[in-house]
């Protein structure tokens, strides 16, 4: 008995063809990182431990240690995600539940802001960070990245808060909660799916962020992994093996994150407000 209905086979072939370039890229990355040399996709020579020397050598050709870059990337992504989720949730709650002047204008404005490509603002951001003394600091890039993502986050979280019942909030007020308590103990736990979704997006987006750190960070001590990886590109001789090794190292935490978290991530919507 065929595993798939006849008419699905064509579709399967089509999908394989579309997926091929991406798969090839991944396979190349894996092979190049693991072997001394690779001709096309055919590995030559032995297992290339040389490619991984960045792990134990304190510094490769004057670069900072990879562990510093890893720590910076983790802090960058983590801080961006935390700030983005926290500020989005609070702003979205206010917009969803409270009346204040210019509320609807604010909403439209936020959406418009999101439509701006970040790169078109980069010169202005550069000057602002310089004035604030945050240029070339991790905190500076964290704040910039988080703010650029806020409009989307606010809109997303507003959608989740809009679905909470008003009667439940009234009940909490009558039960003795202040607005603040109500937000933390009732509203926020009930939009957990939204927090998980937004947090995941924020984390991944910040992990892969390149252009902002590239423009706003100069000194090696604040490098993120993206900058570390990029630094190989400018050399006259490019050590592809080493670069692939770093590339794989850069991808691993994300893969790990998905492997450990997929049970939660796939169920983002099943834990919804209906409990």
């Amino acid at each position: 008995m065929p595993l798939l209905p006849q008419r699905w086979r064509l579709l399967l072939v089509l999908l394989l063809v579309i997926g091929l370039p991406i798969a090839t890229g991944l396979i190349w990355l894996l092979l190049t990182a693991l072997f001394d040399r690779v001709h096309g996709l055919i590995p030559q020579g032995d297992f290339g431990s040389e490619n991984w020397r960045f792990l134990w050598q304190g510094s490769v050709s004057g670069r900072p240690s990879i562990w510093v870059a890893l720590l910076n990337s983790v802090m960058f992504a983590g801080a961006v995600a935390v700030i983005e989720v926290l500020v989005s949730a609070m702003a979205a709650y206010a917009i969803s539940r409270m009346r204040f002047p210019l509320r609807s204008m604010y909403l439209r404005f936020a959406l418009m802001l999101h439509a701006f490509p970040a790169i078109s603002l980069i010169i202005a951001i550069f000057y602002i960070l310089r004035i604030l003394g945050l240029f070339d600091t991790l905190i500076g890039v964290i704040l910039v990245k988080a703010s650029l993502e806020l409009p989307l986050g606010i809109w997303l979280m507003k959608g989740f808060f809009d679905h909470l019942s008003w009667e439940m909030e009234m009940a909490a007020l009558v039960d003795g909660a202040s607005r603040w308590t109500l937000f933390w103990r009732i509203a926020l736990p009930l939009v957990r799916p939204g927090i998980l979704a937004l947090g995941t997006f924020a984390l991944l987006s910040a992990w892969g962020e390149f252009i902002l750190p590239f423009t706003l960070i100069v000194s090696g001590k604040s490098w993120t992994l993206a900058l570390y990886l990029q630094s190989f590109m400018g050399e006259s001789f490019i050590d592809f093996g080493l670069m692939a090794g770093v590339g794989l190292f850069y991808v691993l935490p994300v893969v790990l994150f998905f492997l450990l978290g997929q049970r939660y991530l796939l169920n983002i919507y099943s834990g919804g407000a209906k409990g």
Partner: peptide
Amino acid sequence: IGMVFQSYALYPH
């Protein structure tokens, strides 16, 4: 005051 709502408004979580 104590109040009971039409939808009961229990906290689902």
